[in-house]
Design a protein around this nucleic acid. Structure first.
Lengths: 344, 344
DNA sequence: CTGAAAGCGCTTACAG
DNA sequence: CTGAAAGCGCTTACAG
């Protein structure tokens, strides 16, 4: 391996001189000629500074750990794109981890908790992640930011306007004449779920309607869980005409369950999914969704992290703009004759 | 930050002694009592060795860079699970990168190419990744392994039995009476695509049939690309009765295009997708797929990497077992009357 | 304008 | 059985 020392020898100068040219250090001065000579030798030898040595010197690793509930869930694509963009901007490389891997004794946790391995951690909170782990992280020397609204006072966070998001979904259903609207999806323990339910409840309240407990169906996020939950809902025999599903990933399973029951969307049931991703437009029926600025969430989380890291004081906050946007596709329609007949 | 020196002082011993107990070094001996005392102090002080310092000393980082064409594509879920499992086994943490980020000048490339930043790189080859980048990587000091069959002699690889995989798909269609079978998906420049086409072609050949060039439709992998390509196929007015789609992700878009054209799957067109993921069972119609051992591919790639890293000689190879497995769901059926009528 | 030295936190032969 | 010293590759005040 070629080192600074090698370059210095080949150039006939001292190592500090070489280090100086690499870092454009104001402390070390040199003639333009020697600088160029050193640069040429670096170029031809393919020298790259040893990163571990710099890490040790500066106690910074330039790696940012990013934990999300489920790596391969396409719902996180936008979020990750934002995180990667922010990371690139500030010179970080991201170490992506699955929350399910973040358990006691795992290498991942060890690394994140250890010293000198990562400069900080961004976490998309989820029910998968125990409060114990969160608590441990909060005690770390390096910043941890939650990419999610949170009830924790210990950790800084940036979140989406969840209430407004599901309220937007409910409003759409209401405008289509739906009077009985249910909520399906989300884990009960997850703080975001409560806010999403409140969003629907609040909107129904304005219309003089109610979201009753029996119309709330908690569910894990995977399509298979959505399928199973929707099946139970259907078997209960007491089905709302409109459904706010949290979230698109879950919705694909929900749609399959409806189809298997011989019901049609949107003729027999209208459905709007909270959160959007491109594939929602490419299933049939295409899913009506509420789009939220997930890219911004990722990007701004890195920004917040960076400020924290520089010792600036930062408050947690909710991204209010752009506001949640309804994307009308094909899973919602006016409460119509088919439905009425069926329910009669 | 608490260091080795701090621990040594608190325990009243030398730093080498402390280092010795941490690493169970055979060079440094101590009484059971002092060992326990040191261990207690480490415990109570929450000391964790500085990773950068160890990296510098051992010139190893314990991080493995893993590059895939598209981070959020669920098709890679199994592959990643295998990689993560292997990484955990050998004590690596993974730095996941998107091939689309791996461009000249990016932090990601810089890190992967640099020294002392990663111990090696696993790459899922793709058309996205230029040969130039691959070439640069091949020159690196640290091992690079391709998680894919490849034509490169420069880089070690482990791959799937692509030919046999698509042959299995074609065989299924043939057994259902399909006589004209097309291939849709994959990028022309990607070596795997050629093998997949050969798989279909070979199987048709055995049945005395042909895969003509006009029944081969290249496409990018995203659903939207599958949609656009299928649309063009449909507009050509000359549609096969059976289609092998490469791969499931693309297939979701293909199915939407078929639905939008007012055609039904499998009544008007049978479709089998190459490669499987759980969500394929949770769309309607559920997609008939050919499952391949993607987890094994990821896991074994780490194994190969590890052996390489230890200086052992390793040949590239194709995973033949378990053999590709057909998962019959709802996108294929016998060439039937509907189809005949339509084509008449 | 340039070089020698100390130090980041660790490990490991070596001397006592 | 235990400690002092050198060294991994780098950067940065400091002395010349």
């Amino acid at each position: 391996m070629v080192t600074l020392k090698d370059i210095a020898e080949r150039a006939g100068v001292s190592v500090s001189l070489v280090s100086g040219v690499i870092n454009d250090s104001p402390y070390v001065r040199m003639t333009e000629a020697t600088k160029q000579k050193v640069l040429d030798i670096i170029e031809e030898s393919g020298y790259v500074p040893n990163h571990s040595a710099r890490s040790l010197k500066f106690s910074r690793t330039d790696v940012l750990a990013v934990i999300i509930p489920h790596i391969s869930d396409p719902i996180f694509e936008g979020l990750l794109a934002g995180v990667y963009a922010g990371a690139e901007k500030y010179g970080y490389v991201v170490m992506l981890g699955d929350a399910r891997e973040l358990v006691s004794g795992s290498k991942l946790l060890e690394r994140i908790m250890g010293q000198g391995q990562v400069d900080g951690t961004l976490i998309r909170h989820s029910a998968t992640l125990s409060n114990e782990v969160i608590g441990q992280l909060a005690k770390r020397r390096v910043p941890v930011v939650l990419m999610d609204v949170s009830d924790t006072k210990d950790l800084p966070w940036v979140g989406l306007d969840e209430r407004n998001g599901t309220a937007r979904a409910a409003r759409h259903l209401l405008s289509l004449g739906h009077q009985r609207i249910g909520f399906l999806g989300g884990e009960r323990e997850y703080p975001g779920t409560q806010r999403r339910i409140e969003g629907v409840r609040g909107e129904l309240g304005k219309a003089g309607l109610h979201l009753t407990d029996k119309d709330i169906w908690f569910s894990h996020q995977e399509p298979a869980a959505g399928y199973a939950t929707m099946r139970r809902l259907l078997e209960s025999g007491d089905v709302p005409t409109g459904l706010v599903v949290n979230n698109v990933t879950t919705a694909t399973g929900v749609l399959a369950a409806v189809a298997d029951a011989g019901l049609r969307v949107p003729d027999d049931l209208s459905l709007v999914a909270y959160l959007d991703y491109p594939a929602a437009a490419l299933v049939r029926p295409a899913i009506t969704t509420v789009d939220q600025p997930l890219f911004d969430l990722g990007y701004q989380s890195v920004e917040l992290f960076e400020r924290l890291r520089r010792g600036e004081h930062c408050d947690s906050y909710t991204i209010k703009s752009p506001a949640p946007r309804l994307i009308k596709r094909s899973t919602t329609r006016k409460v119509g004759p088919t439905l009425v007949r069926r329910r009669a």
